[in-house]
């Protein structure tokens, strides 16, 4: 009798992984606001303070610049701090430490001291948190050499990619998403270490490639399922790593399908999709049968009111509509 493999949430996968790495390596410490007694704003660190003590699971005051910088300094001496910033929005307070210091110390000082720090935070809107608490500014970090920026979309990837991030010798920005924490999936047992810098074709298809990441991957897979019922075959590429960017995977895909749509949670101008599109111009120009289209957030500070929030954020209907437009522009018939 084969039982269905157990599914766990994205949140649980993160929690399990932190526990496993704290257990494995005494150099791993956790830092962040309310991660100890409060067990985390989003309960990612639930139970860990009790298990590992306040030296290793360290509550910080509300001082993002201070504690992110401190994590960088501790990493310079060989610790492997995993910092939780409550949401991406607050990481802006620490951006000097992340960009001017974390990203620079190894290269600028001639490769003498690595900075093995992980900075975790969720991005994303859609929870009626209004403009300052709903941003998707991952591209700010993805723009910066010296950082590695990864964004798992599934519980299995959350585990394997967090493990890889903690063991990596460079500063890693680990992008989570509020909408993903409760999503469930099968997570393989045992040690799983992903390779940072690799995208994945998470659904194979022949007619059009949707390139996306994080929450967008779930939307794209849902849309792909719907199109499959009509006999239209969408391929979905989950970028997983925003820096370095695995261009080969999506270039190869688009060369096959000749049609591409980027689904991104960030704002349109200068966004992830802009980079993908520009890349496709170089690597797949002769293979495109229609211009690359982008489905991105409307360029406004995200309003609180639900109808406005819904209008501003890209969703499955937006993606499906654009997919149809691209198919139509190439005379596609299933």
């Amino acid at each position: 009798m084969n039982a269905e493999p157990a599914q766990i949430t994205y949140r649980q996968a993160l929690n399990d992984t932190l526990r496993a790495e704290l257990t494995r390596d005494p150099n791993v410490i956790l830092l962040g606001e309310e991660i100890g007694k409060f067990e985390g704003s989003y309960k990612i660190t639930a139970g860990l303070l009790k298990e590992f003590g306040p030296e290793r699971v360290r509550d910080t005051p509300i001082a993002e610049e201070g504690f992110v910088g401190a994590a960088i300094g501790a990493a310079m001496l060989g610790l492997r701090p995993v910092v939780e910033i409550m949401t991406l929005n607050f990481s802006l307070i620490a951006i000097d430490q992340i960009v001017n210091h974390g990203a620079k110390i190894y290269g600028m000082f001639g490769g003498q001291t690595p900075v093995p720090v992980v900075i975790r935070f969720p991005g994303g809107g859609g929870q009626q948190l209004a403009a300052t608490h709903s941003q998707n500014l991952e591209v700010w970090y993805a723009h910066v050499p010296g950082l590695k920026v990864i964004a798992p979309s599934t519980p299995a990837d959350a585990k394997a990619m967090l493990t890889a991030a903690i063991r990596d010798d460079d500063p890693v920005i680990f992008l989570e998403n509020l909408a993903l924490y409760n999503t469930k999936g099968v997570v393989p047992d045992g040690e799983q270490v992903a390779e940072i810098g690799r995208a994945a074709v998470v659904r194979e298809g022949t007619d059009l490639t949707v390139i996306t990441y994080s929450r967008g991957t779930l939307i794209a897979l849902e849309v792909a399922r719907r199109f499959a019922e009509e006999g239209i075959s969408l391929e979905v590429v989950d970028l997983r790593s925003l820096r370095p960017l695995d261009r080969a995977t999506f270039c190869e895909s688009v060369r096959r399908t000749s049609r591409a749509v980027v689904l991104e949670d960030d704002w349109l101008s200068y966004g992830i999709g802009a980079e993908i599109s520009a890349t496709l111009m170089e690597c797949a120009f002769d293979y495109l049968d229609a211009p690359v289209r982008r489905v991105a957030a409307a360029e406004v500070p995200l309003p609180y009111a639900k109808p406005l929030e819904l209008a501003a954020l890209p969703d499955a209907e937006d993606l499906a509509r654009v997919v149809r437009e691209v198919l139509a522009a190439t005379g596609f018939r299933s």
């Binding site: 522009a329 190439t330 005379g331």
Partner: peptide, 12 residues
């Protein structure tokens, strides 16, 4: 071309 704006696409 059968595409938007008379664009010639693969099927043409």
């Amino acid at each position: 071309g059968s595409g938007p704006g008379g664009r010639v696409v693969r099927q043409d």
